[in-house]
Design a protein around this nucleic acid. Structure first.
Lengths: 268, 268
DNA sequence: CGATCTTTGTGCACGTGTTCACAAAGGCAT
DNA sequence: ATGCCTTTGTGAACACGTGCACAAAGATCG
């Protein structure tokens, strides 16, 4: 009976699947909106709609956190907001350092969504001496040489890299050496980091290329349909603009996932 | 023989898995770097290293495109660059319209990675009349009212939304109505679109929240380890910087994925 | 020209994530 | 209280993605 307990309970104990973690912020946003409208409870169906996911998936996601719903009623909005916030670690303050204050870095510094959820811009840093001392989004830009000091003094554990690609790995190494163990990388480079350091990447160029792929596929499909069934539904009516109209027509088809959209996946 | 063609062949015929499509741009970038260094051929092992993926995965990915490698040698860099570019639809020009020229929109307009790969900023648009006429990144900002005209005239099929969350859905609807069938959304909102329209989302706040989750988990794990085995392996040796050492120690564990990093997934 | 060595391409097993479908649980009306 | 109605929580089937391991293919060298 001693060994009666599962030796390796499910996915690492109360380990929440990565896919679920990625959706929690989405639920949280939807719930926050409901909270602001003073909606007391919400059903999985409604919330799923607002978050743009399947209701079964949402319920399963929540089941990893515990049984926070009431059958026949739904979920208590305030309570769920708290539980998800806690699970995501948003009940504490996360000082963040942004490195590279170019166009993008400045945009990030100005981004409101930051402070709204436990994140605080502890410092802005750049290698360009002509920038240091200047104020961006009400925060003084400091020179990159102070990076180690800033990380240590402010207890920063999350770093955002918004430098050119060439400088990214170097900055990354310094961040990690200074004690940062989570990095959000906007530079178009593959960062190599030691075990235990999390890297997430945001790459505009990659996203566009993925869209281009699908766009091309849609165009090809449309073309083959026109060839297969010439002058079927839309006749030769829209003979004017060559690009726009056919694209929209191809769109209608809906060959992709269950919803209209597709998951935006990208390896770090 | 007309209908001899497969009506719905397998995973959409030569349908490439979504996960593979998402990695192709990564390979392409690594290959482009090799090409610039005039490297003639590359093995799956080397390329996988440069792209930060498993070599078996890379080979399987390429196998969906065809048999472009030579056993015992590797892949011809130039040839692969071409094949992947073609598959992604980068051999043609993709006019892109950016809506919302705030900090972020301006950063995107200035982003070099755009033009490098078949993408061309056809227009910048904003609802603020005080912005129209002004030049950003050498491109004149036009008023949102001209959106339909621009999309039609330039044959735009990809739109980038960089507006505040409140305006995103409205802009999205107009884009779709005008014929745009691929949208890259930077606004923190769930966009609803008709079937056949692809939406990919980039959300800074969500990425940070996912990082916070892992950061919290690492901290908790570190804590429990210290409690479970006080002064076990690392003694009190690195008693210096309080932040870096513990984090790195927790890191060692490697509880996450096979590689050091985790896939950055996000539903649109 | 055959042996050997390298590297691809892929069958197979495994793990993760998604979806369905339904029993159990709770509220609510009577 | 009892029964009905709604909605959750989850078991099980399925789909997808990953990684191993190896046979086949080709280059290279003696």
């Amino acid at each position: 009976m001693a060994t009666g307990r599962p030796p390796r309970p499910a996915t690492r104990g109360r380990g929440i699947p990565e896919a679920t973690v990625a959706r929690l912020p989405l639920y949280l946003r939807a719930l926050t909106a409901l909270s602001e409208r003073s909606v007391p409870t919400v059903s999985s169906e409604e919330l799923a709609g607002a978050a743009g996911v399947n209701s079964a998936k949402l319920r399963k996601d929540f089941s990893y956190l515990g049984s926070y719903g009431t059958r026949g009623v739904g979920y208590d909005v305030e309570y769920l907001v708290y539980q998800i916030s806690r699970e995501l670690g948003l009940t504490q303050d996360w000082p963040v350092v942004i490195v590279g204050i170019g166009n993008l870095g400045a945009a990030l510094a100005n981004y409101g969504g930051f402070a709204s959820r436990g994140f605080r811009v502890a410092a802005l840093m750049d290698a360009d001496p002509s920038l240091t001392g200047r104020s961006v989004a009400g925060i003084e830009v400091r020179h990159i040489d102070e990076l180690e000091t800033v990380v240590e003094d402010s207890g920063v554990s999350i770093g955002v890299i918004a430098t050119p690609a060439g400088a990214a790995q170097q900055v990354c190494d310094r961040l990690v050496a200074a004690g940062v163990s989570s990095i959000l990388n906007f530079a178009p480079t593959v960062l190599s980091v030691p075990d235990g350091v999390d890297v997430r990447k945001v790459d505009l160029s990659i996203e566009l290329q993925i869209l281009a792929f699908h766009e091309q596929r849609k165009a090809a499909e449309e073309l083959s349909r026109e060839v297969a069934a010439p002058a079927a539904g839309e006749a030769a009516a829209p003979a004017a603009p060559p690009a726009a109209a056919p694209a929209a027509a191809a769109a209608r088809r809906g060959d992709r996932g269950p919803d209209g959209d597709i998951p935006a996946v990208m390896p770090a």
